[in-house]
């Protein structure tokens, strides 16, 4: 259990954060994801299958939370304790965080976690076309919010992460 937790907990937590935008809910979601993992009795063919399962459960639980009565009526405040390296970093962060959740998640999975469109489709249970469309729309929204100088082109750092 510990090994599985150590391997995935940061990814789960950050994905949960990308959905909920606050640490407390992200922590609760992370705990619930691992509880499900440890009690579901599943065995996986490969590590990638297990990873996909964990990420999918994270997404489903996050969706449940965002749909919940409590969440809709107590909109969480975004954590304010992040220290940004530059005003641009702050702008980009807040622009992503202000995207609708489905766009935030696809941006996070693609650019931060480095999943391919096909992998995101598998994780999120959507078609690849739908994921591509969401990526397209998310980029457009970011461009709209941040102006023409915004670039979503990946650099070597991202590619390394993807690799």
């Amino acid at each position: 259990m510990e090994q599985i937790y150590d391997k995935h907990h940061e990814s789960v937590y950050r994905l949960a954060y990308a959905y909920t935008k606050n640490r407390a809910d992200a922590e609760d979601l992370t705990s619930e994801v691992f509880l499900r993992r440890f009690t579901c009795g599943k065995t996986f063919d490969s590590e990638s299958h297990e990873t996909a399962w964990i990420m999918r459960v994270t997404i489903n639980l996050a969706k449940d939370l965002l749909r919940s009565f409590r969440y809709r009526f107590t909109v969480p405040l975004e954590d304010a304790d992040l220290v940004f390296e530059s005003p641009e970093e702050s702008e980009v962060w807040h622009a992503v965080m202000n995207l609708p959740a489905k766009y935030r998640s696809v941006i996070h999975l693609y650019y931060y976690e480095g999943y391919s469109v096909a992998e995101i489709a598998k994780i999120s249970g959507k078609s690849e076309t739908a994921v591509q469309t969401q990526l397209y729309r998310a980029r457009k929204l970011l461009k709209n919010a941040l102006g023409e100088e915004f670039s979503h082109e990946t650099n070597s750092a991202i590619l390394q992460r993807n690799g």
Partner: peptide, 24 residues
């Protein structure tokens, strides 16, 4: 210049509380 990598570098600062591990 505003780049998507800046989202990634900011997200890197979001750390999961280690105390949660034993609890889970």
């Amino acid at each position: 210049m505003k780049q998507i990598q800046q989202y990634c570098s900011a997200m890197d600062k979001i750390k999961h509380d280690p105390a949660c591990k034993q609890e889970v």
